[in-house]
């Protein structure tokens, strides 16, 4: 299997890319590359420029945010099939959390600038990719709201 075919096969294992047209799959495979990292590797850092957009194929990435005096708090883990660094597609292209591999990971990554250029030129690719990014981000937004409610707290969380 050549590398493009391997990447297409990997894309198809993710819920994010399920149902992409063959043409879009091929185009993404041309733009992407396989990436692996060991547990403990910091993949990106909160506030820094997001230079890659990733689709996680295997492993787990913790998204953390630093709270002074409480340390690094994991607020979400990225699981296989989901994306990370969606901020590479949305201005100001800066990471909203710090991403660290907490298992050996395998991902398909895309250079942010090249992917954005491709999406500007190729409406069909944009039409295939952007709604999926929106779904992925909306899913996180909804989850964040539920987490914010702190439903499992023993004491009732007072409104403020």
């Amino acid at each position: 299997m050549n590398e493009t075919a391997a990447l297409i096969a990997a894309l198809n294992t993710s819920w994010f890319a399920t149902g992409l047209s063959e043409k879009a799959q091929t185009r993404l495979a041309e733009l992407g590359r396989r990436f692996t990292a060991e547990p403990g590797t910091e993949l990106f850092r909160e506030g820094e420029t997001s230079d890659t957009f990733g689709i996680l194929v295997h492993g787990r990435v913790a998204l953390r945010t630093l709270v002074p005096e409480r340390g690094d708090i994991t607020i979400l883990t990225v699981e296989p099939g989901d994306v990370y660094l969606w901020s590479a597609l949305v201005p100001p292209y800066r990471a909203s959390s710090t991403g660290t591999a907490i298992e050996p990971i395998e991902a398909i990554v895309f250079d942010g600038a090249s992917l954005r250029a491709a999406l500007r030129e190729d409406c069909e690719l944009a039409l295939a990719l952007y709604p999926r990014v929106l779904v992925a981000v909306a899913r996180r937004l909804y989850a964040t709201r539920l987490q914010m409610l702190d439903l499992f707290a023993a004491e009732q969380v007072k409104s403020w």
Binding site: I73, T74, I75, T77, R139, A143, D150
Partner: peptide, 16 residues
């Protein structure tokens, strides 16, 4: 819902 760095399990809501 939230964890410190020592937790390597999942973080997120149960429906995910």
């Amino acid at each position: 819902d939230r964890a410190g760095p020592e937790w390597t399990g999942r973080v997120g809501i149960v429906t995910h």
